[in-house]
Write a protein that binds this DNA or RNA. Structure first.
Lengths: 202, 202
DNA sequence: ACCCTAGGCGAACGAATGTTCCAAACGGGG
DNA sequence: CCCCGTTTGGAACATTCGTTCGCCTAGGGT
């Protein structure tokens, strides 16, 4: 449905309603039942709420999960993304990069249960822009591709290196000319793959 | 109902269950009904789910909204920061000494209202481990200290450089030998200070 | 070997859910 | 001023919800 400049009949109470739902969600992290929405918005009947929900669903703010429960969509959180305003003229706002995400967590971590954060020690990866004290976001899995930065288990020690391969087989390549590649004697065990990085400046 | 290969002891499957709920929420942004939780986790009866929910509520991962709907708590989104990855699925036995729990947003963004995300362009800061395409977390303020990485406005252009000073005054120092320092002719206007960095691989 | 206990099963139950239908109120355009 | 599309109120409805209860199983402790 297009919202051109033309004003439609008695509409945009919906915007206000949406705002209240956003507030509610931000406080409780879920959407209430139709009845509760009703007296939250000052509606006396659930059919009014039902109609509202239909409108908001059509507008893309709300959706149904496979098991028919109300859930907010990404667009539902637009207001929060607008919390990072960008002055006119700033060439590249990261909102573009993250426009599909509500939070940094979600941007970086699609599978929470198999993701761990690991603090980086040492400077063996410094030429890849991975510094001592940075935090690596690691997705736990045993399969990796060449060129991936992986957490591997070598002699019972965990180490972060780039996965590489030559004629003799797989090897773990540091990103620092001062370090030598590691060639696992036996099988190479991969703990997880680094999918992101965060760093905090003090 | 079958059990996965190894019959595990009678222990904290709860951690595994929590993980699946986290994944579910991360995908749908709400928690499903007990019945759905049931077959999501391989439980045949809702009473088992009910018990699980009680346990998770007690552990502080889940709570009830005022209108008795299931909602995740903040802790639900926290993840453990380990100095080294932990081998097996060690339950979150809260050994505070070795790890802290946090959400990435809270970790990186203490002052949301004055924080902006900016995508990094170019490689002028590459020796500081800041790469093209990284996202800088910038706190908007006009004061900065020497050595801070700042977003400065030079000739109407926004640029990320290290703030430095010599006998002639302030200057903006790239972290790349191929680039020359920038010496602002007039006043140096600082848009904000870089307080963090995030990067996503692939 | 025994018991003990936590966790899961299955069924029954009242309460609450969201849908649907129709009628009434609202407000702008003609 | 009236008309008409839109929105809300109200009630009936089948469905689904989460709770509760007793029973059962499997491990671990002693």
């Amino acid at each position: 449905m297009f919202q051109t400049g033309i004003v439609m009949a008695h509409q945009n109470r919906d915007q206000e309603y949406l705002g209240k739902l956003q507030d509610y969600f931000s406080q409780y992290r879920n959407l209430p039942s139709y009845a509760v929405i009703g007296n939250l918005l000052g509606m006396a009947s659930k059919s009014a709420v039902s109609a509202l929900v239909k409108r908001l669903t059509l507008a893309g703010y709300i959706e149904m999960t496979p098991d028919k429960r109300l859930a907010p969509t990404k667009r539902f959180f637009e207001r929060e993304l607008a919390d990072f305003p960008v002055p006119a003229g700033l060439p590249a706002a990261a909102n573009d990069a993250m426009s599909e995400s509500l939070t940094i967590d979600e941007y970086l971590i699609p599978r929470p249960s198999s993701t761990v954060l690991v603090k980086v020690k040492g400077d063996s990866m410094i030429e890849a822009g991975i510094h001592d004290g940075d935090i690596a976001i690691v997705e736990k899995r045993h399969a990796a591709s060449l060129g991936d930065k992986v957490i591997a288990i070598v002699d019972g020690e965990y180490t972060l290196k780039t996965l590489a391969k030559d004629k003799q087989g797989f090897l773990l390549q540091p990103e620092n000319a001062d370090y030598a590649p590691i060639r696992p004697q036996e099988g190479l065990e991969i703990y997880g793959v680094m999918v992101g990085l965060i760093r905090k400046y003090r």
